[in-house]
Computed example of a mutant assay.
Amino acid sequence: MGYRHVFSDNFYRAEIDPERIGVQHYEEAIIQDIEFAAVQTGARIVIIDNLTYLCNSSEKGDVAGLFMMKLMALKKKHALTLLVISHTPKRNLSNPITQNDLAGSKKLYNFFDNVFAIGQSAQDKRIKFVKQVKVRASEYMYDSDNVIVYEITNEDGYVRFLHKGYGKESEHLRDKSEEDESQVRSYILTCHREGKSVREIADLVNRSKTSVHRIIAREKNKEDVGPVEGVPPGDVGQVGQVGQLGQSETVRVHGRSGFRDDLVFEMDDNHCF
């Protein structure tokens, strides 16, 4: 038989009525209800879990930005402390956590005074690490060289983080594989086809602009140099008469578009047409 954890009497938990999800002016109604609940209970700290569920359009920068502006106005009006939780989209666990991993538009990032992320350690599924991603008015203490390490534990029905110490983020990242690199290249090309700039893509994948440009250019070269129609593999440029290196050789090109089959080309000393 398990244990039931008893929370403080000062802890109030509110849920959204499922029947009201998606109604007209849904986000505005949520803001009003948060304000009403905070005033009625005298709460000074409000935790929102999570932003995506609360704001149906959090993936759209303009709509999510307007929603955050209303939350910020509520915070200032009642001198509240807001803790807004936002889940990250699927990400490559080989890469360090950055502001680009925030779900939805990067515009949301500008509204927060401080941002920290909880990462999954590659060492153990029970191990998590906490990293500061943005600091506006305090000291930057827990960056990639000094993340806080925790272990998820369950004691007397209370699932919590047990502090284990400190470490480097790199110690908790998964080793990069060829599959990871392939996924990054594929994502870069997808973003490029969607019309994103090299700078935007570089920010998204945490790579330099030069690296992103090189991957895009390499793919473009592959598309420009396609296979010759009607030519079996290995048939183009086969040597008809093999001579000594440095001597002229005759090469017959079969079935090449725009050329007769009986044309004979001579290669120079560098074996170029």
Rank of each mutant, 00 (worst) to 15 (best):
E181I: 12
E181W: 11
V184A: 01
V184Y: 01
S186N: 07
S186Q: 13
Y187V: 01
L189Y: 02
T190V: 03
T190M: 08
C191M: 15
C191P: 01
H192F: 12
R193T: 11
R193I: 04
R193C: 05
E194P: 00
G195T: 04
K196G: 00
S197A: 09
R199Q: 07
E200L: 02
E200F: 09
E200S: 14
I201R: 08
A202Q: 11
A202N: 10
R207Y: 15
R207S: 10
T210W: 01
T210P: 00
T210R: 14
T210F: 05
H213A: 15
R214K: 14
I215C: 00
I215H: 01
A217F: 00
A217C: 03
A217E: 12
A217I: 01
R218C: 03
R218P: 01
K222W: 06
K222Q: 04
E223T: 10
E223V: 09
E223R: 09
D224F: 03
D224I: 07
V225M: 11
V225C: 08
G226W: 05
G226T: 08
G226P: 01
G226F: 10
P227R: 11
V228C: 07
V228F: 11
V228R: 02
V228Q: 08
V228H: 06
G230V: 01
V231K: 04
P232A: 15
P232M: 14
P233H: 06
V236W: 07
V236G: 09
G237P: 07
Q238K: 15
Q238Y: 13
Q241Y: 13
V242L: 13
V242Q: 09
V242E: 11
G246V: 02
G246Y: 09
G246A: 09
Q247D: 13
S248Y: 02
S248L: 09
S248R: 13
S248V: 13
S248C: 10
S248G: 14
E249T: 10
E249N: 10
E249M: 15
T250H: 15
V251K: 04
V251I: 14
V251T: 08
R252S: 03
R252I: 07
H254P: 12
G255Y: 05
G255I: 00
S257V: 08
S257A: 08
G258T: 04
G258D: 08
R260I: 01
R260F: 07
D261C: 06
D261K: 11
D262S: 15
L263C: 06
L263A: 08
L263T: 02
F265H: 06
F265L: 12
E266Y: 11
E266I: 12
M267G: 07
M267Y: 10
D268K: 02
D268W: 04
D269W: 01
N270W: 02
N270I: 00
